[in-house]
Design a protein around this nucleic acid. Structure first.
Lengths: 288, 288
DNA sequence: GTTCCGCATGAATCGATAG
DNA sequence: ACTATCGATTCATGCGGAA
């Protein structure tokens, strides 16, 4: 697997043709939505979207392991007052390619784009479509159990950044600090609705989804050492999540600027993590 | 409108053929499958579902006023480990009938049945598909405003000078702001995610959705005196919501037992409501 | 050090106006 | 008629400077 732990510049369809069959455990990606991100991706028209995506999906199907999972974060846009149908058409066409449509998670966004219109409210959710190659796939439900009383929303959201980094370095599975709090409490499995805020734009990069989103799916569908692919890696959030959780990663993007940004973020994380892991408590403040 | 405020026994397709064109302001319904009543309806197979539903949808389209709205609460079943596609096929076919697919609300259930499966989590959300006859339809957004978030209290207490005027110079993308518009507001508009518990107030019957769900859409898409249709009225929750909000209702169901149950609930409500309205505080407890 | 507070801005959509 | 551009509307969040 000489492609592991790399960020590769190029069109994912062409790049993946050089990958062997059945070599990826999880594909998590958020492709550019139709007519969005035109500055960096050029913009695919809604009417062309399915034809643009399908040959890529065929490569995803080929490189995914039989027990692997493909999570596609997507949302159709409103065109001329009506919701466009390219997403549901894509589901139908991907099934014809051989994909199984096994689940649809909802990402209930805590903060959504502002605006007011006479005929609709703000769009506050996105689809996370789950596709598989076969009915039996790897799923590690214990990795995402939560204590009763709703942990993720309040507790985790208030953790400072240094707290998060420190905890994640100590415990490979992430959010280690809270694990001790779970002792003696009842744990429950989550549902297929994920309630998280979008990443704020004021950070130096422009990840549109929070790192907790890919992290959740990586924990759920892979184990340590498995390999996670994001064919539209953008600023590298999926790759970062994979690294922090002890998984291998492959990131592909057609945009050179994103490749450089993702590489920079990954390098910083890899330098910082081992230092923090061995550092005394006093060092934390100097790292910020 | 001699059909107003009635619960009618029969197949909705046949019954509605006796209704005039453009006579209904809102159709809100949760057909079989969405609420798992398939046994009482004779069990429509997933593969037959679209063909079964489409002629009914044609009648809905005919009787709905041009400014009216059709809200369809539905969720596809998982068949043999895979999500069935009859819902998305139905959307495509209804568009061919002339419907506009204008929105998809998500009902995020606050509490759902516990359960555990090896390859999926609990399903905690349902679709509420919005269809319209034309791009301009009646929508009374003010009827469903929600309390504003905490951020506004601090912000509006000390409006800065830049907040008072439109500040466009700093924003290249043309997204300005005029915070002074928010002055005096303590309510904001909701989003397209509805977070509501499944429990219902009256424990004597088993409504599949809480009365607050149809009530929310009735407030949003109708005004007092308008007429609300539920062609699969079941235990009558939609009709009850309409009555409590001062709207006219029509309920249709093919199941005789449901017709009687709905009629009983409605009669009780109509008897009880005026009593409660004039009763002293001490009387409430005797009514429960 | 904390907490407080101002401020920029984002996977958006509609309607009017211009070519 | 059909397409392209532009202005208007709006809320949660994180950052950074102030108290």
């Amino acid at each position: 697997m000489d492609f592991a732990n790399k960020i590769i510049h190029g069109d994912c369809e062409a790049v993946l043709k050089g990958f062997p069959d059945n070599s990826i455990d999880l594909i998590f990606t958020s492709p550019p939505y139709a007519d969005r991100r035109q500055k960096t991706y050029g913009g695919v028209k809604p009417s062309d979207y399915v034809d643009w995506f399908l040959p890529k999906a065929e490569q995803f199907l080929r490189v995914l392991r039989p027990t692997g999972t493909f999570i596609l974060n997507i949302k159709e846009r409103v065109v001329d007052g009506e919701k466009h149908i390219y997403v549901i058409e894509l589901i139908l066409k991907m099934r014809q390619q051989g994909w199984l449509w096994t689940e649809e998670f909802v990402w209930h966004k805590k903060n959504s784009y502002p605006g007011k219109w006479p005929n609709r409210f703000r769009d506050n959710w996105e689809r996370l479509l789950q596709f598989n190659k076969q009915k039996k796939f790897n799923m590690y439900q214990e990795a995402v159990v939560v204590p009763i009383g709703d942990w993720a929303k309040d507790r985790l959201a208030n953790l400072s950044e240094t707290d998060k980094i420190r905890d994640e370095s100590k415990v490979g599975s992430g959010f280690g600090k809270n694990v001790s709090n779970w002792l003696g409490r009842d744990k429950v499995y989550p549902t297929n609705v994920i309630h998280m805020a979008t990443e704020c734009a004021n950070k130096n990069h422009s990840a549109t989804f929070p790192i907790d989103l890919p992290a959740w799916f990586i924990k759920l569908f892979t184990k340590e050492g498995d390999i996670v692919l994001d064919p539209f890696v953008g600023s590298g959030t999926t790759a970062l999540a994979a690294i922090q959780l002890g998984r291998k990663h492959v990131g592909i993007d057609i945009n050179k600027g994103y490749i450089e940004l993702a590489g920079k973020r990954i390098t910083e994380t890899q330098i910082r993590l081992p230092i923090i892991a061995e550092a005394p408590e006093e060092m934390y403040s100097t790292l910020n």
